[in-house]
Simulated scan of single mutants.
Amino acid sequence: MKEINYGLVGSDISYSFSPGYFKKKFEKDGLKNYRYNLYDISDINQLPAIIAETKRLRGLNVTIPYKEAIIPLLDSTSKTAKKIGAVNTVTVSKKGKLKGFNTDHYGFRKSLKPLLKEHHEKALILGTGGASKAVAYALRKLGIEYDFVSRNGDEVIFSYTDLDKEIFDEYHIIINTTPMGTYPNIEQCPALDYSLFTDKHIAFDLVYNPEVSTFLKKAGEQGAVTKNGYEMLFYQAEKAWEIWNK
């Protein structure tokens, strides 16, 4: 029986949840000839050779730092991925044509929605990479205003040093879309004044390994509702599987 291949493209991704998740899925569904591989590459331009060498490759997930960089290598992108400006799911046709999709926005929206209360009207998105764009798209769909935060702020983006009590009193959802705090660098966290979190805040971390990041731990100590990125990953993976099997 010939193998059908899927995989994850990223850099320094040995920690990833995806291989274990899809291995269990294949076993549960009796898909004995299905494989999910890690494509840990230092340059996105290595990807075309991998695709050419991998027989019966049907789909890819894409993670940090290539969600934006992969777009020029694709033959087409979905309308939503085009609007977001980032891709985390790719279909590979039998003729080798690549089409990009974004399922991160779906996973994030599904995961955040149960936590929302009336006062959760505005969000701060920590980071400005590909994942942040999907989060922003999801927040727009939920009718939540947002602003970005980065190390180097400007006229339209907050810097971390801008964030004071007045801003925290206005923005009650704080979302970490950076890889900061991911295993093995688990002591790291965004440079916030964590004493500004209250029980009115949601602290959402796209990091899921460790289960409780330093960001979530410090926010939780101030009474914030906390959630990691595992459920988001589950939802986006299910949506990716649906796309691959259309």
Results as ranks from 00 to 15, higher is better:
Phe168Thr: 10
Val225Gly: 06
Lys24Phe: 01
Pro184Leu: 04
Lys94Asp: 09
Asp162Asn: 14
Leu57Ala: 15
Ile125His: 13
Ala203Val: 11
Glu155Met: 01
Lys165Arg: 15
Asn33Ser: 11
Leu139Asn: 07
Val92Glu: 05
Phe22Val: 02
Ile70Arg: 10
Asp75Gln: 12
Thr178Tyr: 15
Ser78His: 13
Ala237Cys: 06
Thr80Tyr: 06
Pro210Asn: 05
Gly127Gln: 13
Pro190Gln: 12
Met180Thr: 15
Ile50Trp: 04
Gly130Val: 07
Lys83Val: 05
Lys239Met: 04
Thr226Arg: 08
Val156Cys: 01
Lys110Gly: 01
Phe108Asn: 04
Gly127Tyr: 11
Lys117Ile: 11
Asp164Ser: 11
Ala69His: 07
Asn176Met: 05
Ile173His: 11
Tyr36His: 12
Asp193Val: 10
Cys189Tyr: 11
Ile71Met: 12
Gln188Met: 08
Gln188Phe: 07
Leu31Lys: 10
Thr77Gly: 02
Gly130Ile: 09
Glu231Tyr: 08
Ala191Lys: 14
Leu60Thr: 12
Ser16Asn: 00
Cys189Ser: 10
Gly59Cys: 05
Asn61Leu: 12
Ser76Glu: 15
Val87Asp: 02
Asp164Asn: 15
Gly223Trp: 01
Phe148Arg: 01
Pro179Cys: 09
Arg140Asp: 10
Lys165Leu: 05
Asn45Trp: 06
Val149Phe: 09
Leu47Gly: 09
Asp205Val: 05
Ala131Gln: 03
Lys141Val: 03
Arg109Pro: 01
Asn88Gln: 00
Gly229Tyr: 00
Ser195Gln: 03
Arg56His: 13
Ala69Ser: 14
Ile13Cys: 10
Gly20Trp: 02
Ser18Phe: 02
Tyr66Asn: 08
Gly20Leu: 00
Tyr66Thr: 01
Ala131Gly: 05
Ile4Met: 11
Leu57Met: 15
Leu60Val: 09
Leu126Gln: 12
Val156Glu: 07
Leu196Asp: 12
Lys32Pro: 09
Thr161His: 12
Asn61Met: 09
Phe22Ala: 04
Gly129Ile: 04
His201Arg: 05
Leu38Ile: 07
Lys133Asn: 14
Ala219Ile: 01
Lys83Asn: 07
Lys25Glu: 10
Ile202Met: 10
Ile50Cys: 08
Ala81Gly: 06
Tyr66Met: 08
Ser150Glu: 07
Thr91Gln: 03
Lys24Ile: 03
Glu170Val: 05
Leu233Ser: 06
Asn37Met: 13
Gly229Pro: 01
Leu116Asp: 13
Gly107Asn: 03
Lys141Glu: 11
Ser159Leu: 08
Thr89Ile: 04
Asp75Met: 12
Thr161Gln: 14
Phe108Arg: 02
Leu126Thr: 13
Leu31Ile: 06
Arg109Tyr: 00
Ser14Gln: 04
Val87Tyr: 04
Tyr39Cys: 10
Pro19His: 06
Ala81Ser: 12
Lys67Met: 10
Asp193Ile: 11
Val87Ala: 00
Trp241Gln: 10
Trp244Asp: 02
Met1Pro: 14
Phe26His: 09
Glu211Asn: 04
Phe168Asn: 02
Glu211Gly: 02
Glu27Trp: 07
Met232Ala: 08
Ser14Met: 00
Phe215Lys: 06
Asn176Leu: 09
Phe22Gln: 09
Gly127Phe: 04
Lys218Gly: 03
Tyr66Trp: 07
Gly10Lys: 07
Lys23Trp: 09
Val62Lys: 02
Thr161Cys: 08
Thr54Arg: 07
